[in-house]
Write a protein that binds this DNA or RNA. Structure first.
Lengths: 196, 196, 196, 196
DNA sequence: TATGAATGAGCGTTCATTCAT
DNA sequence: AATGAATGAACGCTCATTCAT
């Protein structure tokens, strides 16, 4: 079924164009015409692949987060316990030059999620998956005696998650005050507190 | 003699209308026409008080944050050390029904700050003021022996700040998973880790 | 395949509508909405064909002058020397009922050219072409012995040009004092002075 | 009656501000608010002195031309015949750095005169006065034997007038091609042709 | 399916004018 | 008379969406 493969790759092409645009100019820069032109495809065809602008944006966000999700899973396999968490957060939550684009898209998405139901749903779905992963790693750490047995892994996962969300936010907005080095130090300092 | 009106109070009236609108419908809903109508004043008059939409939005954000800043200062006077911090963060960073509006405006503002210079500047200015306050309270706490003498108060202030920013973000986006009660627990748990 | 329309002919349609509007109501009457409606097309489509109002106006002026330029060239072929000049100026510089529209557009254009760079450039380009033509005809006239050999053809071309510009201006503004008959007499009287 | 003097001087102040504005930015820059601010007077008061924007503009043009008219009259007294004409046109029609402002205002006025009745009337009135002056000087010249007795002074006055109008126009629009020196040469060359 | 022309509601902003003080 | 706040129609321009080809 070659047609279907083609169809999906066209969607990707548009999605990636959308991500580049949002990263460059924000949601204001995300016009259907700009997406088509950035993707090097025709304007009209965009509407064959996405039924609306929101549809396109959600697809784009899914595309952009799926890579991060993939990485989360990889780290869960390669490392374990706190080590995995540290690697994960330093690789993922950190905002540096190379991940700035994704962070901006993510912030735009959060903003959408605060107001529009479909985006909110998608956000809930995404973070509950990530929280599960974090919790699982904490459980590993607990069973390996890395952290205090008394801790609630769910609660600590939530704490870790909000911490990491805050680092991502400030890293994006204040690269001067929160450069990658500082972000990293914030992460390790927090994990050290857990390590006990 | 001109019609006697209080220039500043008219600006407030518009600013508050803008806040209500952003909270209700996001930046998309923040049209100059909607603001005028929400404020119960004429469209044209809006432009006597603000020279542009950005100007209005920045004023609105300042209006919305100035109350929080005022509270920060109050708590600094009434309490001291970790106690003040706890009161402050529980009162301020917490997103509940009553502060949801301001949090939404804040998120919209963060989004703007990521993309437009004047908003970024204003954001930098706001958070550096808050960071200073947090640091001062941590210094109090240290000198009173509440926390480890070896801690860097600047670094801990930054950690506390990103944590609180993350709580605010998730409290807004996931009131179900992060209700005020949970937000509070996250805060106290973190301060307990500091308290040592 | 896209809807088949001739891009250039649509531009003409808008340009002609613009000319009618300027002639009827001046630049004040030249609103994008009025142009669309005068052209019998939708408002939005105007912006597919012209990227701004200035762009439209410049195109309209080019459209309106291109016919005159064409005539200049024709006369240069059919006649020669002073005869050609006389035919040319009587046909071209003369403001009568039928050319009043173009003259009004031209005056509006001059006004724009005095203030906005792109219009000024276009004006310079147009008149330098016309000056060249006039000069060429004067050279013909000189080589045929119609005019004094000692005359500078460039200088006389400039004199002829400002004279003709003045006639056009007054013919437009004072049709009563400068009717076509008088305009014609002014032209022939001047050429007679040259003829010597 | 001191009040009346005051009244007239305020009108002048506004009129001069209007002229500066038109010269600087064209009719588009001529907003009532800008005029008030340029004049250093209050916005509301503008409407006590002029009943509309057109009223103000016409007053401003009258103000700007009255000085030229005064000069025309002076020259008529000081000189006579062609000498007076030459002095007059070199002083008046010439567009140089210092008269560029007035020329721009004049062009804006012509543009208005082509479309709006009151401006057209005023224009007719102004030029018929000037034509009379030119004719009178030509009559002097004729009676002094400076020019051919057979010439119609009315017709030659009209010719001279359109020539001078053309020089003024091109001098304004093409200071490079028609610098003051060239304008002057055009004038003297024309008068030489008359002189016979 | 692919294309890009067509549409018109909506945007931020400007502005002459009116009017209460 | 003097002031400047109030008003709302109109402007140029953008844009997601529809649709004819």
């Amino acid at each position: 079924m070659p047609k279907i493969v083609d169809h999906e790759s066209q969607r990707c092409r548009f999605a990636e164009a959308a991500i580049r645009l949002v990263a460059r100019e924000g949601l204001e820069g995300l016009t259907m015409r700009a997406v088509a032109s950035e993707a090097g495809l025709s304007y009209g065809s965009l509407f064959h692949y996405f039924e609306s602008k929101d549809d396109l944006l959600m697809h784009a966000v899914r595309h952009s987060t799926s890579q991060q999700t993939r990485r989360v899973n990889e780290f869960s396999l390669k490392f374990s316990g706190l080590k995995a968490l540290e690697q994960l957060m330093c690789d993922d939550a950190l905002v540096d030059e190379s991940s700035r684009e994704d962070s901006l898209v993510w912030l735009a998405f959060l903003y959408k999620a605060a107001l529009k139901e479909p985006f909110a749903e998608m956000h809930a779905e995404l973070i509950s998956g990530w929280l599960d992963r974090i919790e699982a790693l904490l459980e590993e750490a607990r069973s390996e005696g890395e952290i205090n047995q008394a801790l609630s892994t769910r609660f600590e996962a939530m704490a870790l998650w909000v911490y990491s969300a805050g680092i991502g936010q400030q890293g994006l907005l204040h690269p001067v005050m929160f450069p990658p080095r500082v972000q990293k130090k914030l992460i390790t300092a927090y994990l050290d507190k857990l390590r006990k």
